[in-house]
C-alpha cells in the first residue's frame, strides 16, 4: 500500500469530519480493504479520533478491516433469491470453497460474501463473481462457475 495513494484519497475530499464515511469507502474501493495505515493517516490529518474511525469502519458492511481475496464471490440471498433456492446455493458455495460467508480462502483467491439483493431478481438465484453475473444458478453449476476463475 502506498502512503501517497492514501494521501491522494484524503485530498479528494474537503478536510472536514463529515467526509469520513465517503473517505473510508474510497479507501475500500482502492485497496479492496481498509488497511491500518490508512486509518492512522486519516486520524492524523483530519483529527478524527481513532475510536470513531474504527467504529464507522466496523459498522458498515461495505467496509472490511481484513484483506480480501482476489475474487469476490457474492451469493444473493435477497427475498426473491431466497424463495428460489438461494440458501442451497450458498451451502454449495461454502462447501466448494470450504469457507463460511464473510471469510476468505487461505490462498487469498476467493472472499465469499452474502448480499441481500442485487436487484436482478428475474435471474434468481444469482451469484456475482467480481463483476460477472450468473443467473438461475443451480447447485450443479456452482463448481463450474468457481473453477473458471484463477
Amino acid at each position: 500500500m502506498e502512503a501517497e495513494k492514501v494521501d491522494e484519497i484524503i485530498d479528494r475530499h474537503p478536510a472536514k469530519q463529515e467526509v469520513l464515511i465517503q473517505l473510508l469507502l474510497d479507501m475500500q474501493n482502492e485497496f479492496n480493504w481498509i488497511p491500518k495505515q490508512a486509518i492512522l493517516r486519516i486520524n492524523e490529518r483530519l483529527q478524527i479520533p481513532l475510536s470513531q474511525i474504527y467504529r464507522v469502519a466496523s459498522f458498515y458492511k461495505a467496509m472490511s478491516l481484513t484483506p480480501r481475496g482476489k475474487h469476490i464471490v457474492n451469493v444473493c440471498l435477497g427475498t426473491a433469491c431466497h424463495v428460489r433456492g438461494g440458501p442451497r446455493i450458498m451451502d454449495k458455495v461454502e462447501e466448494s470453497l470450504k469457507i463460511k460467508a464473510g471469510k476468505t480462502t487461505q490462498d487469498m483467491k476467493f472472499t465469499l460474501e452474502r448480499v441481500n439483493c442485487l436487484g436482478c431478481c428475474a435471474l434468481g438465484p444469482v451469484i456475482v463473481v467480481d463483476k460477472d453475473y450468473y443467473g438461475n444458478v443451480t447447485t450443479a453449476k456452482v463448481k463450474e462457475i468457481l473453477e473458471s476463475y484463477d
Binding site: 442485487l118 436487484g119 436482478c120 431478481c121 428475474a122 435471474l123 444469482v126 453475473y133 443467473g135
Partner: peptide
C-alpha cells in the same frame, strides 16, 4: 432509433 435497456437487470443478463 434502437433503444437497449442498460439497467442493472438487463446488464446482468
Amino acid at each position: 432509433r434502437i433503444a437497449v435497456c442498460a439497467g442493472t437487470g438487463c446488464l446482468a443478463s
